[in-house]
């Protein structure tokens, strides 16, 4: 097989490798730093893609540190698909093992929040359940079957990721205290936002999404979290447009 593109690719991501000898300038002299244009384009464009895709992570460690670590990451984990909107799935794990940053324990989950925001942004449009669906006879209500919309993503974290996000958002917030937080990322219209879930709500939403009836999901949440507050959880689910009764769920 023709090895031209293999040699080219290997030298692109590894600046230690020699420029392939079949590359030349217009006069037939070795290409030299002309090859660096491609090396630079690849690393800069991939770094920029991550820079745009991980706003919270970038803010937490600063743009300069972020771009430096991104330049490491893109060489180790080049994209495997031309869909740059999904690039960076391996970043949370990379952050967890990247020596200079391992002391920031919450960083990987903050990167997961960035990923969830982006996935939600591009997810399929599914109409949220109308609140009037809950104004029905109790026997209808308990049998109701709902699911998460494709744009609704649950992130369970051992860290206060919602508070970290809020403190770093435009509106700002108090300095987070150490605690675990469950976060719902959802998209009422086109702009995804994180919602802090009260205890048990993540279990409740996941039970609904697994196909359990309204009553079964409630029972399940009460089992895991005796103080589960259905009214509070339902309010957040309706505000965020995270639940659908549409039968045509498409992920």
């Amino acid at each position: 097989m023709n090895p031209v593109q293999r040699r080219f690719r290997e030298a692109l991501l590894d600046a230690e490798r020699a420029v392939p000898p079949d590359l030349q300038d217009g006069a037939g002299a070795p290409a030299g730093r002309r090859f660096s244009v491609y090396r630079n384009n690849v690393v800069v464009s991939l770094t920029q893609a991550l820079h745009d895709a991980f706003p919270l992570t970038r803010k937490l460690i600063g743009a300069q540190s972020f771009d430096a670590l991104a330049a490491h990451f893109v060489r180790k984990h080049p994209p495997t698909s031309p869909l740059m909107m999904y690039y960076g799935d391996a970043l949370p794990e990379f952050l967890g093992s990247f020596e200079p940053l391992t002391h920031i324990g919450y960083l990987p989950d903050c990167a997961r929040l960035d990923i969830a925001m982006r996935r939600s942004y591009h997810a399929a449009d599914t109409p949220a359940v109308d609140p009037s669906a809950f104004q029905c006879a109790p026997e209808t209500l308990i049998a109701l079957r709902l699911a998460l919309t494709p744009a609704a993503i649950i992130l369970r974290s051992a860290w206060p990721v919602f508070d970290i996000w809020r403190m770093n958002s435009a509106e700002g917030g108090a300095k987070p205290r150490v605690m675990a937080q469950d976060v719902l990322i959802a998209r009422p219209d086109f702009d995804p936002a994180p919602y802090l879930l009260p205890p048990g709500a993540a279990d409740w939403l996941e039970a609904l999404d697994a196909g359990r009836s309204f009553r079964d999901a409630h029972d399940h949440a009460l089992q895991t979290t005796p103080k589960f507050d259905l009214a509070q959880a339902l309010t957040i689910a309706l505000q965020s447009g995270a639940l659908t009764d549409s039968k045509t769920k498409d992920r």
Binding site: N2, V4, R9, L12, Y38, V42, S45
Partner: peptide, 22 residues
């Protein structure tokens, strides 16, 4: 141009030689 090789996407428009084979 090419941008994917062996399942790696390089996010740039890369050049190819102009031969009968290509």
């Amino acid at each position: 141009a090419w941008s994917t090789h062996d399942g790696q996407f390089l996010n740039d428009l890369l050049p190819l030689p102009y031969t009968n084979e290509t």
